[in-house]
Nucleic acid binder design. Structure first.
Length: 572
RNA sequence: CGGAGCGUAGCGCAGCCUGGUAGCGCGCUGCGUUCGGGACGCAGAGGCCGAGGGUUCGAAUCCCUCCGCUCCGACCA
C-alpha cells in the first residue's frame, strides 16, 4: 500500500478534546476520526489494526472450540423484560420503536438473545458443552463517554457465551475462556492481568476482569504484592484488625452551627476525620436505610447493593432525610433512629465517636456504637484503600489503576431460569443449562495497546497488531533506481506474507521520519539515493534507537528474519 | 443528572474585557529555491465567528435561550 493513495492525514498538534496519550495518538496518527461524542470512524490504518486484533481473538476462540455466530444488534424489548434487566439496565440502553410502535433496543450485550436462541437449539446433554461467540457492534448510552475509544457509545465487542450441563462443567468452560483471554492479550502485546471483579448488572456467581495497568485507567485495582490477591476496587475486600472495647463517657451534645460536612467538622473541631461517623441515608428499592461508616472512609455502593440485595439503590432526597432523621442533611447520626442501620465492620466495638445529633446545627460526641445505636448488621461496606489489610494474607495492599479490556463471568442459571433454557440429561430429566459469559472490548483493546506502548514521538505497535509490519520510506520518489529497489523489496516482503506500507510522498525526509515514528510500524526501512550509492539500505526497529545498514541484495532477507523474530516474541 | 470550561478556516489558537464588518501558525493549491529528522520565499484558495433571539446606526465582541464538545463529580449527610 502506498501513502500517496491512502486516506491518511497525520496531525502535528494534539486535538484539543483529547486528554490521554492514547487518544491523542489515535487521532494524530490518523487511525480514527470523531463523528460526535463517543462515536468514531475507523480510518484505513486504524481499521487494519482492528482487523488484526479481531483475527487474534477469532483464532483463540476457535482454538477453545467456541463457534462464531452473529446475532442481531436490534432486539425486541420483551426479551429484556423476561430477564428483568429492562429495569436494571434500562437507562443505559438505546431504545426505539418500529413502525408498529413495538419497543426495540440496540443491544448493549446479548445474554437474552443468546439464551433464547440456545434454549430452542439445545435439547440434549449430547449437545453440551456449547460455547458461541460473536464480534459485533454494541450500543450503550453511556453517562459519560470518555477518552476516545475507551468509553464510547458504540463500540466493537467480542462476546462469548458458554452453556453446560453442570456447575462443574461450567467451571471448565470458564477456565478455557479465561486461558484463551490470557493468550489473546499476550498476543496483542498487552500486559494484562486478571483480577477478581464485581458481577454488576450482568449478575452471576463470580467473575474476573482483565486489566491493562495504566495510570489513565478508569478502574482502581487493589493489589497484594505478598500473596498475589488482586481485585477491582469495586469488589475488593479487606480484613479489619480486632479492636478491644473501651470505656466511653456519656454522650454530649456540641453546637456546630452550619457545619455539615466531615471536612468542615475536621477544621471546626480540630479532630481527625476518622473520629467521626459518616451517616448516609439511602433508598434501597424505595425503602430508606441508614449506612454508617468511619468519617475517613468512602462507601462502596456495589457492596451495599449486594448486602441489601437491592435492585435499585439511590441516595435519599432531602425530604426523606428530614423524615428519617428529623433534621436537614448535614446533621444526621445513627443514635435514636428507627430505620434499619447497616454499619461497616470497622465500627464494631468503636467508641468515642462524633456524629450528627439529628437536630439542626448540632452534633454529639462520645458515641459508643454498641451502647448507643441499634445496628441491624455489620458488613464490609467501604472502598478498600491503600494500606488496608489483604483478606487472604493480612499484608498491606496497594492501589493501582487499570483499563478493563476483558471480563469473564460465571453466570450460573440466572438467565437459563428466566428463559427456561433446559436440556434432557441421560436419565431423561429436564435441567437448566449453566451459563458463562465472556467479553472483550475490541476497540478498547486497540486503544489500550497504544496507551501501553508509546513514546514522545508516537505509537510503538507490537508487530502482531500493527497496521503494517513494515514501513518503507522512499526518500527519493523521483529517482528510478530508488523506486526499483523499493518495488523489488515490496514484492519480496509481500510474497512472504508481510504487509508493507510505502511512504512515496513528495515530502522531505524529515517529514517522513517524523510520520513513521508517529504511526509506529515496528520495522522501518529507508531507501534513498544516498544510501544506494554505497549499495546500502537502512533498517530500524521502532522500539530501539539503533540503525542497521545492510547491502541491497541482503535487505529482504534481513527484514524477513527480523519480522519473524518479532512475531515469535508476540506469540510466546 | 449536578458542577466547571470551551465552541472563530481541515487542525491548533488569537481577537471578545473597552462593539466599527476577521487574523496568526500548521495543513491545502501554484511557481521557484531546497532535500537523511516536521525547510524557505513569493502568489493564492478557504470562514452564515455553534444556532436562534434581543440591545444598537452597527455585534465574533454586550444580554437571553438553546445546541454541541471536554473535564470533574456522582462522596454526601
Amino acid at each position: 500500500m502506498r501513502w500517496s493513495r491512502t486516506l491518511l492525514n497525520t496531525l502535528r498538534d494534539n486535538p484539543q478534546d483529547a486528554e490521554i496519550n492514547s487518544h491523542k495518538l489515535l487521532i494524530r496518527a490518523g487511525l480514527a476520526r470523531k463523528l460526535a461524542g463517543g462515536l468514531y470512524t475507523f480510518m484505513p490504518l486504524g481499521l487494519r489494526t482492528l482487523h488484526k486484533i479481531s483475527a487474534i481473538v477469532r483464532d483463540e476462540m476457535n482454538k477453545a472450540e467456541a463457534q462464531e455466530i452473529l446475532m442481531p444488534a436490534l432486539q425486541p424489548s420483551e426479551l429484556w423484560e423476561r430477564s428483568g434487566r429492562l429495569e436494571t439496565m434500562g437507562p443505559g440502553m438505546f431504545k426505539l420503536k418500529d413502525r408498529a410502535e413495538r419497543l426495540m433496543a440496540l443491544g448493549p450485550t446479548h445474554e437474552e438473545v443468546v439464551t433464547e436462541l440456545l434454549s430452542n437449539e439445545i435439547n440434549s446433554y449430547r449437545q453440551l458443552p456449547c460455547t458461541v461467540y460473536q464480534i459485533q457492534t454494541k450500543f450503550r448510552d453511556e453517562i459519560r463517554p470518555r477518552f476516545g475509544l475507551m468509553r464510547a457509545k458504540e463500540f466493537i465487542m467480542k462476546d462469548a457465551y458458554s452453556f453446560d450441563a453442570s456447575m462443574d462443567d461450567a467451571d471448565k468452560s470458564y477456565k478455557a475462556m479465561y486461558n484463551a483471554y490470557v493468550r489473546i492479550f499476550n498476543r496483542c502485546g498487552l500486559d494484562a492481568r486478571p483480577v477478581e471483579a464485581d458481577t454488576g448488572d450482568i449478575g452471576g456467581q463470580w467473575s474476573h476482569e482483565f486489566m491493562v495497568l495504566a495510570d489513565s485507567g478508569e478502574d482502581g485495582i487493589v493489589d497484594c504484592a505478598a500473596c498475589g490477591y488482586a481485585a477491582n476496587q469495586e469488589k475488593a475486600e479487606r480484613i479489619i484488625p480486632e479492636k478491644e472495647a473501651q470505656l466511653c463517657p456519656a454522650i454530649e451534645e456540641i453546637e456546630t452551627p452550619g457545619i455539615k460536612t466531615i471536612d468542615q467538622l475536621v477544621s471546626f473541631l480540630k479532630c481527625k476525620s476518622s473520629a467521626f461517623i459518616k451517616t448516609l441515608i439511602y433508598l434501597a428499592d424505595d425503602q430508606p436505610v441508614v449506612i454508617i461508616i468511619p468519617g475517613n472512609r468512602a462507601l462502596n455502593e456495589h457492596k451495599l447493593k449486594r448486602v441489601l440485595q437491592a435492585k435499585k439503590l439511590e441516595m435519599a432526597d432531602d425530604a426523606t432525610i428530614l423524615s428519617v432523621t428529623g433534621a436537614t442533611a448535614g446533621f444526621a447520626g445513627p443514635v435514636g433512629l428507627s430505620v434499619k442501620i447497616f454499619a461497616d465492620n470497622s465500627l464494631k466495638n468503636a467508641t468515642n465517636l462524633i456524629t450528627g445529633a439529628n437536630k439542626a446545627d448540632s452534633h454529639i460526641k462520645n458515641v459508643d456504637i454498641e451502647r448507643d445505636t441499634d445496628v441491624t448488621a455489620y458488613e464490609d461496606l467501604v472502598i478498600v484503600t491503600a494500606g488496608d489489610c489483604c483478606p487472604r494474607c493480612r499484608e498491606r495492599m496497594q492501589i493501582k489503576r487499570g483499563i478493563e479490556v476483558g471480563h469473564v463471568f460465571k453466570l450460573g442459571t440466572k438467565y437459563t431460569e428466566a428463559f427456561e433454557a433446559k436440556y434432557l440429561n441421560d436419565k431423561g430429566e429436564s435441567l437448566e443449562m449453566v451459563m458463562g459469559c465472556y467479553g472483550i472490548g475490541v476497540t478498547r483493546t486497540l486503544q489500550a495497546v497504544i496507551e501501553q506502548s508509546n513514546d514522545k514521538d508516537g505509537i510503538i505497535w507490537p508487530i502482531s497488531v500493527a497496521p503494517f509490519a513494515i514501513t518503507i520510506l522512499n526518500l527519493d520518489p523521483s529517482d528510478d533506481q530508488v523506486n526499483n529497489v523499493v518495488d523489488g523489496l515490496e514484492k519480496e516482503l509481500t510474497d512472504h506474507n508481510l504487509d508493507v506500507f510505502i511512504d512515496d510522498r513528495n515530502e522531505r525526509p524529515g517529514v517522513k521520519f517524523k510520520d513513521a515514528d508517529l504511526i509506529g510500524c515496528p520495522l522501518r526501512v529507508v531507501v534513498g539515493a544516498r544510501g544506494l550509492k554505497n549499495n546500502s539500505i537502512e533498517i530500524k526497529q521502532r522500539s530501539s534507537k539503533k540503525n542497521t545498514q545492510v547491502p541491497v541484495e541482503e535487505a529482504a532477507k534481513s527484514i524477513i528474519q527480523l519480522a519473524e523474530e518479532m512475531f515469535q516474541r508476540c506469540n510466546s
